[in-house]
Amino acid sequence: MTILYSFLFCGFVCLIGQMILDNSKLTPGHVTSILVVVGAFLGMIGFYDKIIDIVGMGASIPITSFGNTLFASSYKGFQSMGFLGIFKNMLCDVSLGICSAIIFSFIFSIPNKPKD
């Protein structure tokens, strides 16, 4: 059942992005930034955790989960260490996404010939 839910949710988020792209002059950069901020906002309300419980993986794949994870880990840091904990813990959980993207894109760009 969670497979169907994640199909619907992930498709729905992509559909929102496509609607913004089609009906305005915003670029994909704008759309992803907006969705990240929306994800952080939903995380603050506590709505995104409920979605993850119901939907499963489908809620972690769209870029909105990036904002949610940033917010959740910084809030966890505040609870454990106080104000400095926000800065210390902010990137803990998203580090997987950022670092793997950086390292593998660097490795894969070495054998490629530069484009003109």
């Binding site: 969670t2 497979i3 169907l4 994640s6 199909f7 619907l8 949710f9 992930c10 498709g11 729905f12 988020v13 992509c14 559909l15 992005g17 496509q18 609607m19 089609d22 499963g56 993986m57 489908g58 972690s60 794949i61 769209p62």
Partner: peptide, 22 residues
């Protein structure tokens, strides 16, 4: 037409991820 394609593509990716997770 575009939005149907986008919905299917995003949805399939979500479903694929969920299957692998399970």
């Amino acid at each position: 037409n575009n939005s149907i394609k986008v919905f299917l593509c995003g949805g399939l990716m979500g479903a694929f991820g969920e299957i692998i997770r399970l």
